[in-house]
Amino acid sequence: MMKLNNGVEMPALGFGVFQTPPEQTIDAVASALETGYRHIDTAAAYGNEHEVGEAIHGSGLARDEIFVETKVWITDYGYDETLHAFDKSAGKLGVEQIDLLILHQALPGEFDLTIAAYKALEKLYADDRVRAIGVSNFMPRHLGRLLSETEIVPAVNQVEVHPYFRQSELLAYDDQHGIRNQAWSPIGGITFYRDGSNGSTLEDPVIGDIAEAHDKTAAQVMLRWHLQQGRQAIPKSVTPSRIAENFDIFDFELSTEQLAVIDALDTGVRGGPEPDAITRENFGRQIPEA
């Protein structure tokens, strides 16, 4: 478990459903919960919150055994809009309280809306509708303004981090401010690399050598790298064997030298969209009611 800045404990490894079609989400989440995952990460914009909720309710696990995280999409930014976004997500998930609710993007071109949305999260936290609040894809410049205009330091910042794009400056900034880093695309498998300039992290010889030394897979080594550096990682898969493989990372430890060697693979090339390129004009989408 990892302790957030408000004392809430969050599992060290989460299970993601980004780009998982709704019709595959129930089985994938059910498989993850059966494997032992206890943190499910979804988002309003993923279009599969309802299916995540179905899998959770069908698991037989008590509600307080599962840490549920979701995200507010930019179309629902603004104070009242974000309060309603909570109602939509909670309704689809079938829960009264969300463990971690975060803003999906910084929306820097309309940051007043972002501030208003975050103040709505603060209200939801004060009312005990959410156990923790945070952000996603926020850079230091965005966080600096957020911290200056709001009261609660985000519990997490969910950002793109993997061996080919470590974002060291951002990770250090978050650490300095008590913000837990969450890694999406933690093995670089979702978006890399669009221009063909780099191969897959799963085929990187440096990572492969480390994996062989530990009798583990490349994916397991990368996930272990995150955890040992204090980041939560959120791998995704719809394949039961891969879901189980990604969870089997608690029985070995990377050396300081091995961690440094993986750090050195950083290319500085982002695979996902530039945070400053996110606008409601380009990325707006209506989030359906519950």
Score class of each variant (00 low, 15 high):
V221A: 04
I234F: 01
R280H: 11
V238H: 03
T201K: 03
G208W: 03
E281S: 09
W184P: 10
T239F: 00
F252W: 07
A183D: 07
L259H: 09
I187F: 11
I207R: 02
A244L: 04
F247N: 04
P240I: 04
Q228F: 10
E212I: 07
M222G: 00
A218N: 03
G284E: 12
A183H: 07
A233P: 10
I207Y: 01
Y193R: 14
I249S: 00
L254V: 13
L227I: 14
A183C: 12
T267H: 07
I190R: 08
D215W: 05
V221E: 01
I207V: 06
I278F: 09
V269Q: 15
H214P: 02
L259W: 12
A183I: 07
I262F: 02
D248Q: 02
D215G: 05
S255M: 05
D204R: 04
N282E: 10
A183Y: 08
P235N: 07
L259T: 12
K236I: 09
I262D: 00
V261Q: 15
A233V: 10
V261P: 13
S200H: 13
A264Y: 04
I190N: 11
D204L: 08
H226V: 06
M222A: 02
D215I: 06
N198K: 14
T256C: 08
S200T: 14
I190V: 13
W225K: 02
N198I: 13
I234T: 01
W184M: 11
G268Q: 03
E274N: 14
T267N: 07
I207C: 03
H214T: 02
D204N: 14
D204Y: 03
A218H: 03
G271L: 02
Q220L: 08
Q220V: 06
L265T: 05
L227G: 02
D215P: 03
Q220R: 10
T201G: 09
G196I: 05
R224I: 00
T279W: 04
S185I: 06
Q229N: 15
K236W: 05
I278V: 14
T256I: 11
A277C: 06
V206Y: 04
E257T: 13
E274I: 12
F247Y: 11
N282I: 07
G189D: 04
S197G: 15
T279I: 09
G284H: 08
Q228A: 10
S255V: 10
D209A: 15
V221F: 00
P186K: 05
T279E: 02
F247P: 06
A219T: 06
P240F: 05
D209S: 13
Q229R: 14
T201V: 13
G284D: 11
L265G: 03
R270P: 01
L202A: 12
T239S: 03
D209K: 07
R280G: 14
A218L: 01
E212Y: 13
P186C: 05
L223T: 03
R270S: 00
W225E: 01
G196D: 04
D209T: 08
E274D: 15
N198W: 14
G271T: 06
S197E: 12
F252D: 13
L202Q: 06
N246M: 08
I278C: 11
S200E: 15
F247W: 06
I187Y: 06
F247L: 07
I207Q: 02
V269K: 15
E245S: 10
D248H: 01
A218S: 08
